[in-house]
Computed example of a mutant assay.
Amino acid sequence: MKAALLIIGLIVSLPVHAEIYKYVDESGQVTYTNLPRRGAKRLNLEPAETTAAPARKKEASTPANFPRVDSNTQRKRDDLRRSVLQDELLTEERNLAEATAAQKAGEALRSGEQAGSASWRARTDKLRDIVKRHEDNIRALKKELASIK
């Protein structure tokens, strides 16, 4: 079994060779094909030379003349950003609590309404979307806060 796989592997790995023909029709259209046809000329193509790609210089991610910020200034900017994000996080957490309470109240059936009715479903879907949006915002804010050095 191993010998058969080895033989198949060797056969498959042999270089493929195909003859290439160039055919020009009456209207001047040039066609290259591996199928011989009347009036086509066989092309003798030498194997393409392969060379390694030249090594690329690693370019700086920012231009050399780009203004630099000293570490003290950057630390102040990061602190301010952290403070703003924490304030937004507190606001979103408050909004989530309110939206969750509104969702629970909105899921209660109103007089003459049936669970699963179109109006009930529309109301609860809207409230569920609002809760989800606040949860997504909280996740994003926590991710941003974690990325600040």
Results as ranks from 00 to 15, higher is better:
M1I: 00
K2T: 04
A3N: 10
A4R: 00
A4E: 04
L5N: 07
L6W: 10
I8G: 14
I11V: 08
I11H: 11
V12L: 14
V12Y: 01
V12S: 09
S13P: 08
P15T: 12
P15I: 00
V16L: 13
V16R: 13
H17D: 09
H17F: 11
H17M: 08
A18C: 08
Y21F: 15
V24C: 01
V24D: 01
D25Y: 07
D25Q: 03
E26N: 11
E26S: 10
S27Q: 09
S27M: 13
V30R: 07
T31I: 10
Y32R: 00
Y32G: 07
T33W: 03
L35F: 06
L35A: 12
R37W: 00
R37N: 03
R37H: 03
R37Q: 06
R38M: 12
G39K: 01
R42N: 10
L43W: 06
L43Y: 08
L43S: 05
N44F: 12
N44L: 14
E46D: 08
E46C: 03
P47M: 01
P47K: 05
P47R: 00
A48K: 10
T50L: 05
T51P: 04
A53M: 06
A55H: 10
K58V: 10
E59N: 12
E59R: 15
T62Y: 14
T62C: 14
P63K: 13
P63I: 09
P63R: 15
A64P: 12
F66M: 13
R68C: 13
V69H: 15
V69F: 13
S71W: 08
S71F: 11
N72H: 07
Q74V: 05
Q74C: 13
R75A: 07
R75K: 15
D78A: 03
D78G: 04
D78W: 15
D79C: 10
L80D: 05
R81L: 11
R81G: 02
R82M: 00
R82S: 01
V84I: 05
L85E: 01
L90S: 07
L90M: 01
L90V: 06
T91I: 12
E93L: 09
A97F: 14
A97E: 07
E98M: 12
A99Y: 04
A99V: 08
T100Y: 02
A101W: 02
A102K: 04
Q103W: 15
A105W: 11
G106Q: 00
G106E: 06
E107C: 08
L109D: 12
R110W: 08
S111N: 12
S111W: 14
G112A: 13
G112D: 13
G112F: 13
E113R: 09
A115W: 13
G116P: 11
S117L: 11
A118Q: 14
A118V: 03
S119Y: 05
W120P: 02
W120E: 04
R121A: 04
R121W: 10
A122L: 09
R123F: 07
T124V: 14
D125N: 07
L127I: 06
R128M: 08
I130N: 11
I130Q: 15
K132M: 11
K132V: 10
K132S: 06
E135K: 02
N137K: 03
I138Q: 03
R139M: 05
L141V: 00
K143F: 00
K143G: 03
L145H: 09
A146P: 02
A146L: 03
A146D: 14
A146Y: 15
K149F: 01
K149S: 02
